[in-house]
Design a protein around this nucleic acid. Structure first.
Lengths: 187, 187
DNA sequence: TTGCTAAAACTAATACCATTAGTTATAATG
DNA sequence: CATTATAACTAATGGTATTAGTTTTAGCAA
């Protein structure tokens, strides 16, 4: 107890992620963090710059985790199989870490270069997986934008429970990806 | 000036939408509304229940506007043509009313039935436009979820300027929709 | 025209929030 | 064992939403 409670930036970020995933991103406040970590609010400023910087670190951590998950889900897969794997990994990641995923997205608009870089790594990875299809560069961009739209859109609608109806969402995801991939082959 | 400034709920919501579109949804606060409307913060409570209820009304208004825009963009169109039109209408609506669109989405998770109803109207409209393809009910659901994912994903990524790269986003949208529609025909 | 009343403004106050300044206690190092 | 840097603390500032209680006024009735 009392002074020297063993805090550091990592601990604070980790606590923030827990709160975000259990509640939501809005529930991450200096006050809620302090309570969870058994210190007074101002004490946190020995480890972080601001609440905004907490979101910032969450975003980078989340994007890297998402990237790793996608990488390891595809291994040496290529083509349709790889796209299905990486998509499933993406959607499952959002389901397991909803608050962390929120953080990755909220922060994007701030235009921070570290975050852009972490996000770009994912885009480049997907582009790489598309190489086996022999698309032009421009087509590749369109396709990545399409996949990203599908995955982000699907994930967030699901997160907000906007789908309603009792048809399994996993089946829908498979159907949507198959349709998109089929269209790519025919185009 | 002073008392009786002619406020009502409509005026407040309208001011909120203006602030949201010009800045963003977070900029809509009781304080910013009061300032814009030249009254003190507590005065607003004569016209609204809470800040949350303002977001709520924004969401419903936004969904109805979006619905109307999509309806009138398709008129008596059917099939691919209709899907392209309604999609373009959706994306353009988000570009023109970014803050209002934010509100429609933030509110979804609250699970309010009025909002669910307004959102469902759009889903049913898109389902109707798909009738000419002769899909089964289950396929229809998958496809609507797909289109919704594409449109919401595309719109929000564009909004946060997450696309980078200088290839026109309109071209990407057309490409993505064509690909998806092509896949539907082959399936 | 005058007086009443409901509505809409106001001020004051409460309870939260993030953040900064300044102080105290402690853990580790010389 | 003394010093020092660090990490906790308290106190204070200025922001937020919201509630309570008060004053003002617009419009209607007599």
């Amino acid at each position: 107890m009392s002074p020297r409670s063993g805090l550091n930036q990592q601990t604070v970020i980790k606590a923030a992620i827990e709160i975000a995933n259990q509640e939501n991103l809005q529930a991450v406040t200096i006050a809620s963090l302090a309570k969870k970590l058994n210190v007074r609010s101002p004490s946190l400023y020995n480890h972080i710059d601001s609440l905004n910087s907490v979101f910032h670190h969450m975003a980078i951590y989340g994007l890297e985790e998402l990237y790793d998950t996608m990488i390891s889900s595809t291994q040496d897969q290529l083509g349709d199989e790889a796209i299905h794997s990486l998509s499933k990994a993406y959607i499952y990641f959002v389901r397991q870490h909803p608050g962390l995923y929120e953080a990755t997205f909220i922060a994007l608009k701030q235009g921070d270069s570290n975050i852009k870089y972490a996000a770009d790594k994912i885009v480049r990875f997907v582009l790489k997986k598309l190489e086996s299809y022999n698309f032009t560069y421009q087509e590749g961009i369109h396709i990545v934008r399409g996949l990203r739209s599908i995955l982000h859109g699907f994930a967030t609608i699901e997160q907000k429970e906007g789908f309603g109806i009792d048809i399994p969402t996993d089946e829908s995801l498979t159907y949507i990806l198959d349709t998109f991939l089929l269209g790519l082959k025919k185009g």
